[in-house]
Amino acid sequence: MPRTRLSICQRKQRFASEEEAMRAAIAATIDLRPYRCDRCGRYHLTSRLKGKRRLPVA
């Protein structure tokens, strides 16, 4: 898996836990998935779906 670019990490919102990121993803108006960033160690959201698990329906 390619490493997250620092510029991408810095401009994304950071979540302290996967649960917090999951709640934000479910509340979003578009389909998002949380992932743990290999740069900062926190969670971000992505709209990329390849290889990501499905979220429960809100």
Rank of each mutant, 00 (worst) to 15 (best):
R3K: 07
R3A: 13
R3M: 01
R3W: 03
T4G: 05
T4C: 14
T4V: 15
T4R: 11
R5V: 01
R5A: 09
R5S: 05
R5Q: 10
L6M: 06
L6A: 14
L6E: 13
L6W: 03
S7T: 08
S7M: 04
S7F: 08
I8H: 10
I8N: 04
C9A: 10
C9F: 03
C9T: 07
C9I: 05
Q10T: 06
Q10R: 10
Q10N: 15
Q10M: 06
Q10I: 01
R11Y: 05
R11W: 05
R11H: 13
R11D: 07
K12V: 02
K12C: 15
Q13F: 00
R14T: 08
R14C: 07
R14M: 03
F15A: 09
F15P: 01
A16T: 04
A16E: 14
A16K: 13
A16I: 07
A16S: 11
S17Q: 06
S17R: 08
S17N: 02
S17G: 05
S17T: 15
E18Y: 09
E18W: 02
E18R: 10
E18V: 05
E19I: 00
E19W: 01
E19D: 15
E19N: 11
E20F: 03
E20L: 11
A21Y: 08
A21F: 03
M22I: 06
M22D: 10
R23Y: 09
R23E: 14
R23W: 13
A24F: 10
A24M: 07
A24S: 15
A24P: 07
A25K: 05
A25H: 08
A25Y: 12
A25F: 01
I26C: 15
I26H: 09
I26T: 12
I26W: 07
I26R: 15
I26F: 11
I26G: 12
A27I: 08
A27Q: 14
A27M: 12
A27D: 15
A28V: 00
A28R: 02
A28Y: 01
A28C: 08
A28E: 01
A28W: 00
T29R: 13
T29F: 11
T29G: 15
I30P: 00
I30Q: 09
I30F: 07
D31E: 10
D31L: 05
D31S: 12
D31I: 02
D31M: 03
L32E: 03
L32F: 06
L32Y: 11
L32I: 00
L32Q: 12
R33N: 12
R33Q: 12
R33G: 09
R33W: 02
R33D: 13
P34D: 06
P34I: 00
P34C: 03
P34T: 01
P34R: 04
Y35L: 11
Y35C: 06
Y35N: 12
Y35V: 07
Y35H: 14
R36D: 01
R36V: 04
R36Y: 04
R36S: 06
R36T: 02
C37G: 10
C37K: 09
C37E: 08
D38E: 07
D38K: 00
R39L: 02
R39K: 11
R39Y: 06
R39M: 10
C40F: 01
C40S: 08
C40I: 03
C40W: 01
G41D: 12
G41F: 01
G41S: 04
R42P: 09
R42S: 15
R42D: 12
R42L: 14
Y43P: 01
Y43V: 05
Y43K: 02
Y43R: 02
Y43A: 04
